[in-house]
């Protein structure tokens, strides 16, 4: 004792504190599980926060139907391992039920459509808090969001009406119909997440590590995985490359990066040397405009 905590210990402790606040303040919380590294870290943190007890919330997954198969295999493996409840809701069902227009185009992303499924699911189970793995370093609008982010009955985020959030005090009081999105790893950066994965020896889906994959090179130079949802045409430049994924979203909107990093150590080294931001490198959905994320959040997105 006597010396201050290592920064990873401090971040971990803060995240555990936030998870326990959710357990203490809400009646029907849920953990939004995407199968990506950030939500896998959340599960790991929840184990530390609540074991030997059960999680005071189920894991919930919005399946867009465009997931990487590796992610789904890993999801089921993880849930079986930790013996906790998983609830899955499909975007395809929402599209059918609500007669929504499915995504179109060469790379048809269901990113915007998953908001409908998420809001329906919140209503169906009357979730009052949804824990997510978003981090403030990801994007400028996220940098301004609270740890406890209150959403109205339409799931909307209003940046001007955010509650002040001070010290260690989280105000999760809400009216019926409202819910709170909670982000325990708000203060973590991408590098922090990887250093934590390394220290805690956390398992991840295989697509995070370098592997050979057939990809279409887009006009802007991004590497998009070839799959049944992407429309192929003759002009496509198709290559076989050693790649890995920095983020795991839909197959239709997440691009791969060239990499030879097959271990966590190699990935950390690569991140230290690379000079492109996480979402800038891999997400077509954020490139639409300077305020793409802000707009999606305001309309109820994660």
């Amino acid at each position: 004792m006597g010396k201050s905590l290592d920064y990873l210990d401090e971040l971990e402790s803060e995240a555990i504190y936030i998870l326990r606040e959710v357990a203490g303040q809400f009646e029907r919380p849920a953990l939004l599980f995407s199968g990506g590294k950030d939500s896998i870290c959340l599960v790991h943190l929840a184990l530390k926060a609540f074991r030997p007890g059960k999680f005071p919330f189920p894991l919930v997954h919005i399946d867009t139907g465009h997931n990487f198969p590796e992610t789904l295999i890993f999801r089921d493996y993880l849930v079986k391992n930790i013996n906790e409840q998983l609830i899955v809701r499909n975007v395809a069902d929402t599209i059918q039920k609500k007669q929504l227009l499915d995504a179109k185009g060469k790379f048809p992303t269901r990113n915007a459509l998953q908001t409908f499924t998420l809001l329906d699911m919140i209503e169906e189970f009357e979730f009052d808090a949804c824990i997510g793995g978003a981090r403030r370093d990801e994007e400028k609008a996220r940098a301004k969001e609270r740890v406890f982010s209150v959403r109205d009955e339409f799931g909307q985020w209003d940046p001007k009406k955010q509650r002040p959030e001070l010290w260690n005090i989280y105000n999760g009081k809400i009216n019926k119909g409202e819910n709170v999105r909670v982000f325990p790893i708000s203060n973590w950066t991408e590098l922090d997440v990887w250093n934590y994965i390394k220290r805690e020896k956390i398992e991840l889906p295989s697509i995070y590590f370098a592997h050979e994959r057939e990809c279409i090179v887009t006009v802007s130079g991004q590497l998009m995985n070839t799959n049944e949802f992407v429309t192929r045409d003759e002009k496509d430049v198709v290559v076989n490359k050693m790649v890995r994924y920095r983020t795991v979203g839909d197959m239709t909107c997440t691009s791969a990066i060239e990499s030879t990093a097959t271990t966590v150590d190699a990935i950390i080294n690569e991140l230290l040397e690379t000079n492109i931001s996480e979402r800038g490198a891999t997400r077509m959905d954020d490139r639409i405009s300077e305020a793409a994320m802000e707009d999606r959040k305001k309309s109820g997105y994660f």
Binding site: Y7, R136, D137, K140, A141, A143, K144, P159, K160, Q162, S186, N187, T189, L191, D192, E290, A291, E294
Partner: peptide, 29 residues
């Protein structure tokens, strides 16, 4: 540091924005 559209439009900071950086010696929030 100006993350929200209104802030960029008006050239002001409205809300607290959190930024992160790390040097060889320390992590900063």
């Amino acid at each position: 540091t100006d993350g929200l559209r209104a802030e960029r439009e008006q050239g002001i900071t409205i809300d607290v924005a959190y930024k992160y950086f790390t040097t060889a010696k320390r992590k900063f929030i």
